[in-house]
Nucleic acid binder design. Structure first.
Lengths: 249, 249
DNA sequence: CGCCCATTTGACAGCTTTCAAATCGCGTGG
DNA sequence: CCACGCGATTTGAAAGCTGTCAAATGGGCG
């Protein structure tokens, strides 16, 4: 493959980890029309309630999905890293049920929903891969429901740190001992169903116990093994393809 | 269509609401091999962590998906009614990240995962429909994350009652004013991240305020409009195809 | 009639929130 | 190079929602 530098190559690489594509599948993916967009930190990538016309691939930076509830509170639904498909539901659903915002300055590639639908009609293998991606997305959602619903603040926070550690490691953006995660304590709170103040106190507890240090946007995991225990974490729900699950985590 | 009495017809009807199938698509779906299974109340339909070999269609009864966390607590992830596809992730993912249990005696049709994969490869329109179903599933998960993460016990409970009311109504299993929902107060608690005791007190508050009466497995909505308000409920996230959203809810 | 499970209640503990106010870190401008 | 300003972090005290633990009550089924 000579197209490693193609903008959509990360998407191809990610999807083809799960399903082998033949040459025509690959060609069809790389021939998708797209436009490249830069979004600055804090801006919307997709607004809630608008009708989605595009599906997006996160090329660089960190983004998150959110919902605003009646009293104005924000729930962060998932965090996304470079290579993740954002707003895949925009390819089929009529209205966006949530918003997507940029946590850092990001770059995205926008692909028209119509092009996705046509691609899937003509190349069923690509459809399977996109479906797979959506299934994993759902699995992560499920773990978040359980995390927010059943675990204490401390366990929730550890769990989220583990998830981000593993995913950043997988994406090559860090190690299990140190990675960059530019979320504020308030962001953590909104992701975990806690207040920023309580995240602060909980984080301090983890630090006192020698599990984690967080300084600005750097996260230092002092004891991965104990953090995994404290976070009731098992990476199965991420449905990683390699054997990270048993070997290193 | 003469095959209204076919066991898989409900699945065909549901999926074709979203995407028009041609005759060969329909035929292919109805020709799927399946086996019919009865599961009694409380038993597992799919066990967590086992490798899924089948995808299931719920033919009758009520089922729910759950996760058990480290300390043994149970989080209910979603409730399923007749016509729902269960364990669709079993078609592609290697291990089941959650369990499925029967809330009432249920009947399911089991379709081999391999058959699903092959069907999707040959009939891309069916693949689109299944993908769509999975996307809606994810949307419901997201609402649950927000529900459990950001709302008070009272609002959470109202929200869940609204969701079930709309879905039972949609499925023809009840009206918006009265429906059967055989969940115990403990079940509600496990779905909402609350204790059964607190659900009891909250339910009593709703009753006192003239919103809802629950007696055994019957739910009587005394004031749908106020319940919707109290539950911060909007049905958009269910991505219903008809205009229930604006007309009657 | 009696058992079993679900519901109901009460008292109390406790985790988390709320509300401020103080402190810190760092980019910007003087 | 230092001062200013703003957002993020930190802290304290007090309130509150929800959980815990038990025990009593209720209702349906064998």
């Amino acid at each position: 493959m000579a197209q490693f530098d193609h903008v959509l190559a990360p998407m191809l690489r990610k999807l083809s980890k799960w399903f082998p594509f033949d040459d025509r599948d690959q060609e069809a993916i790389l021939n998708l029309s797209y436009s490249r967009q830069a979004v600055v930190r804090g801006d919307y990538i997709v607004r809630e309630s608008e009708e989605p016309t595009h599906t997006r691939l996160l090329l660089s930076g960190v983004a998150y999905r959110q919902k605003i509830v009646g009293d104005g509170a924000r729930q962060i639904l998932s965090i996304h890293l470079a290579g993740d498909l954002l707003d895949l539901q925009g390819a089929l659903l009529r209205t966006s049920d949530h918003g997507v915002k940029a946590l850092t300055d990001v770059e995205v590639a926008e692909v028209p929903s119509e092009a996705i639908r046509q691609l899937v009609s003509e190349r069923p293998a690509v459809g399977l891969a996109l479906w797979y991606d959506t299934l994993v997305d759902g699995s992560v959602h499920r773990e978040w429901i359980a995390n927010v619903g059943q675990r204490t603040a401390r366990v929730r926070l550890c769990h989220l740190l583990c998830e981000m550690g593993v995913r950043l490691y997988e994406t090559g953006l860090g190690t299990l001992n140190r990675f960059e995660l530019p979320m504020t304590q308030q962001d953590f709170g909104d992701a975990l169903g806690l207040t920023g103040v309580h995240v602060n106190r909980t984080l301090k507890g983890l630090s006192k116990d020698g599990l984690v240090e967080k300084r600005r946007s750097s996260v230092y995991i002092k004891d991965w093994k104990r953090l995994v225990q404290a976070g009731d974490f098992s990476p199965h729900y991420l449905h990683l393809q390699d054997d990270l699950q048993t070997s290193r985590v």
